[in-house]
C-alpha cells in the first residue's frame, strides 16, 4: 500500500489531479464493521482520512432506540391492535392519481384522532412510486402521495408539527416485480409513527 501511495500523492500534487484516497479493499472491511455496529447509534457518522477517503455511513437504526417500559399500561398499544383501524398503515392510490380514496377515510380518521389525542406522537408519511421512469420524478410522485395523506390528516385538525411527508420514490419497493400488480402495490403511502 505504502509503495503505491507515495508516487500517487507526488504525482497527484505535480499534475494537480485529485486522488480518491486509497484502494477500496481496506475500506470495504471497515465499512462492514460499521454496518454491524450501526445499531449503537442512529446518527450518521463521517469517517474521513482514517478510512482512506472512503466515507462510511452509519445505517439508520430505525426503531432500535430503547424505550422505557411503562408498567402501568399493560394493555396493547392501540396502534398495534389488529382490530383497530390504527393498525392499518398503507394507503393505495390509483394509477396517476393522488386522491385518498373513500375506502381509507376510516383509517385516516383513526390516525387523526390518535394524533389529536397524543400531542407527543409524530407521524412520518412515506410515499412510494412504481419503478417506471425517472428516479427523481418518481421521488416527486411518491411525495405527492405522501402529501395527500398528510393533508387529509391536517384537515382533521392534526398540527403540522406532528406531521412530516417524505418520499422513498421507487427506491424501497414493497413488491419488487415488474407486473401491473407489483406496480399497484408500490403506488402507496405508509403512515409510520416516530417511535416505531
Amino acid at each position: 500500500m505504502k509503495r503505491i501511495l507515495l508516487p500517487l500523492l507526488v504525482l497527484g500534487a505535480l499534475s494537480g489531479c485529485e486522488t480518491l484516497g486509497l484502494g477500496g479493499e481496506k475500506a470495504a472491511i471497515e465499512d462492514r464493521n460499521a454496518g454491524q455496529t450501526a445499531s449503537k447509534s442512529s446518527a450518521s457518522t463521517t469517517n474521513s482520512a482514517a478510512s482512506g477517503g472512503t466515507q462510511t455511513s452509519a445505517l439508520g437504526a430505525g426503531g432500535l432506540n430503547g424505550k422505557s417500559l411503562d408498567g402501568d399500561k399493560m394493555q396493547m398499544d392501540p396502534r398495534k391492535d389488529p382490530a383497530s383501524p390504527l393498525s392499518k398503515r398503507s394507503i393505495y392510490f390509483d394509477f396517476d392519481s393522488y386522491v385518498v380514496r373513500d375506502e381509507y377515510r376510516s383509517v385516516v380518521e383513526a390516525h387523526a384522532a390518535y394524533l389529536n389525542g397524543n400531542r407527543s406522537a409524530r407521524v412520518i408519511v412515506q410515499g412510494n412510486a412504481d419503478e417506471r421512469g425517472s428516479r427523481e420524478y418518481n421521488l416527486a410522485l411518491g411525495q405527492k402521495r405522501a402529501e395527500a395523506v398528510r393533508k387529509s390528516l391536517s384537515v382533521l385538525g392534526v398540527p403540522e408539527s406532528q406531521l412530516e411527508a417524505i418520499s422513498f420514490g421507487e427506491e424501497k419497493p414493497r413488491s419488487s416485480g415488474s407486473s401491473e400488480q407489483d406496480y399497484a402495490e408500490n403506488r402507496r403511502a405508509d403512515i409510520v409513527y416516530g417511535d416505531e
Partner: peptide, 18 residues
C-alpha cells in the same frame, strides 16, 4: 436515504469528508 428520508450531501473526493 440513510437517515430514513432523502437528504442531500456534498462529499469531498480528496479526503472523503462530507
Amino acid at each position: 436515504f440513510e437517515d430514513r428520508k432523502p437528504i442531500v450531501y456534498v462529499q469531498s473526493l480528496r479526503d472523503g469528508s462530507r
